[in-house]
Design a protein around this nucleic acid. Structure first.
Lengths: 366, 366
DNA sequence: TACCGATGTGAATCTACGT
DNA sequence: AACGTAGATTCACATCGGT
């Protein structure tokens, strides 16, 4: 680390972690010299007070100084400057990936477009295990957004269509990626056993990006290197990397981490492809989709009970309200009940099990 | 259709489709008068035709230079103007939903923030049956992005947490929604059998938005009404709507469509509510009513602590005095504590949560 | 060993109301 | 407007200790 850059030279500081402010460091690199940039900039979260879980434990929030900006204007200036510096060092056919949340991603996307970058896709990282919303005041923030853009509209960017299709079991890769957050053994810890970096990204995410949008030997630069996920995956997949990181503690962790990675050591990749046997289909979806109407009557399989569907996907039967399972269990005096096989609805004079509708939705989802 | 708006009057043109440019029409509506705005703005503007450059110079339809930067400027001006008009007519505690793709959603989100709207969530509509990418040059564009924002940071927006949770079978609703695109019988056709509108949204999408972020009777305005999905769902779910649409052919289709919609009965529209909506019961009432006696001992749910009830409805435990919440929090060393679920009392040899007594009082209040 | 329950934790713009 | 108090609120995993 703390490498000196030979200015003006055409040689790049390959597979090194450069210390310093990313804008200054990028400006010292030769122009049109890198193939891909992956950037995970500060999100500018504006957290007010502490947040506790219902069990009173405190959420360890991102309150680091590097995420604090005084205003959107300050954040926009910062975004403009680093994207401009990135653009200069990008090869004509190079591309960029940025990641963000609703706090900052709209500023990022707009500025990319303003500078002439050409958006190829926005990609949604759907987290399979996000943190819930503890106060019940909003939707669970269960995704982050990535933007993939070429240097300009005419650029011949790299896209390994077949590789991604293969990774997706023969089906064309979509713009929404379901991947778990980085935890467990992959999550780097400091000497105290605390997380080494508050926002470490999973290697599975970078694996997809590197495999799909670079070729072996390409140079991938990450201006917000952190603990070096980009470098680790680049090395594994036989690409070169350049990391830039301001904070020494992160550089140290990254240095050590990458040193332990072996090239092409794909076994080291912890790509989790958590496959559920059957996707869960909430009963409410049948109502939303108009397959069942609010107010419509359901009849139990044994014909002894009826219940009315409500707009939020719950049932009412006399004074009992609840899910298809809860109401079924109550009516039967049973501890539990599979509502999917218990309830039927009327179509063309016949009683049809509601499970038929679930199968229909599952077929659509493949 | 083609309704005249009574300017200055406090009465809204409810459940009508207003003809004209949405900015002009919104500016003619009374301020702070609608509860929710749902907007699906166009992004394929015919920029070369009848528009002006940002500096107001005219654009030659044929061969005038019209670069990307100019076109973004025009789009941003358009976005700024309609979002400003929308903001004026929104009630202080109102909210807005906008939907877009990567072509325009970053401009939308950034301008929302610039105007002081407060983003609550960005939501990904994950299409279960998207159009494949035929050329294999990019990822399948399989989602669109929605932004949900309140009028400002302090606003008390409507969020029916329990209803959405019920719709999702008891698990809190996430920010990624898997719903099919609008096709089949739901897709409106014109007289030639072609689709009546290029971007008709599925009713399931609006169902979730209307159910989750409005109350029955609320006024929902859609400035880009198209074929009236917003109006149809609003009517079904017992809300009022105001549509604005420039093109007569869409207004006609929407008019006919909404006329054929049947409102769901009131009972079906009742949704699950949270405890927060229940009337507050002071603990002291339990003592006043003799449900608990002064001097009686309460035991904590975990069995580790006890406290004595005092005549004024406070508790004493050793040297600690205060409300059921304060004493519970102190004994647990927690930042806060819900005394109602923390404390139990003895009846017939069993420990009964004091919340049972509160339920009893609430039932009597009905 | 295998299973079970208790415990811990993750990029979070996370309350409402009365005084 | 600031402040204090009542009291409502969590999902998917990973780890670990005990049976």
């Amino acid at each position: 680390m703390n490498k000196t850059i030979r200015k003006g030279a055409n040689s790049l500081p390959i597979n090194e972690i450069l210390a310093g402010d990313c804008i200054e460091v990028m400006n010292a690199l030769p122009e049109e010299s890198v193939d891909l940039i992956f950037a995970d900039p500060p999100y500018n979260l504006q957290l007010r007070g502490d947040l506790h879980r219902p069990d009173n434990s405190k959420v360890d929030a991102v309150d680091d100084a590097w995420d604090q900006f005084d205003s959107f204007k300050v954040y926009d200036n910062f975004t403009r400057d680093w994207l401009k510096a990135a653009r200069r060092i990008l090869k004509p056919n190079g591309a960029i990936w940025v990641i963000g949340s609703y706090h900052n991603v709209f500023r990022l996307g707009a500025e990319l477009q303003n500078q002439g970058y050409w958006i190829l896709n926005d990609v949604v990282w759907r987290k399979s295990n996000p943190m819930p919303n503890f106060r019940g005041k909003r939707l669970t923030n269960a995704h982050e957004t990535l933007i993939w853009a070429s240097k300009n509209e005419a650029a011949k960017y790299t896209f390994n269509y077949e590789a991604l299709k293969a990774l997706n079991e023969g089906i064309q890769m979509r713009s929404d990626w379901v991947l778990p957050i980085c935890n467990g053994g992959e999550r780097l810890k400091d000497d105290n056993g605390d997380k080494a970096h508050p926002t470490q990204k999973p290697e599975s995410l970078l694996h997809r990006i590197v495999l799909g949008t670079t070729n072996p030997g390409d140079v991938i630069l990450d201006p917000f290197f952190g603990t070096g996920t980009t470098g680790a995956v680049a090395k594994m997949l036989g690409r070169e990397f350049i990391g830039i990181e301001r904070e020494e503690k992160y550089r140290k962790v990254a240095e050590k981490r990458i040193a332990s990675v072996r090239k092409f050591d794909k076994d080291a990749l912890r790509v989790s492809t958590s496959k559920r046997a059957e996707p869960r289909v909430p009963f409410g979806q049948l109502v939303e989709r108009g397959m069942l109407r609010p107010g419509e009557e359901l009849v139990s399989m044994n014909g002894r009970s009826t219940a009315k569907v409500r707009a939020d996907g719950t049932l009412v039967s006399n004074d009992v309200k609840g899910s298809i399972h809860q109401v079924g269990a109550h009516l039967e005096g049973a501890p539990s009940c599979n509502g999917w096989t218990y309830w039927t609805f009327k179509r063309d004079g016949k009683n049809v099990p509601i499970d038929v509708l679930r199968q229909q939705i599952r077929a659509e989802m493949q």
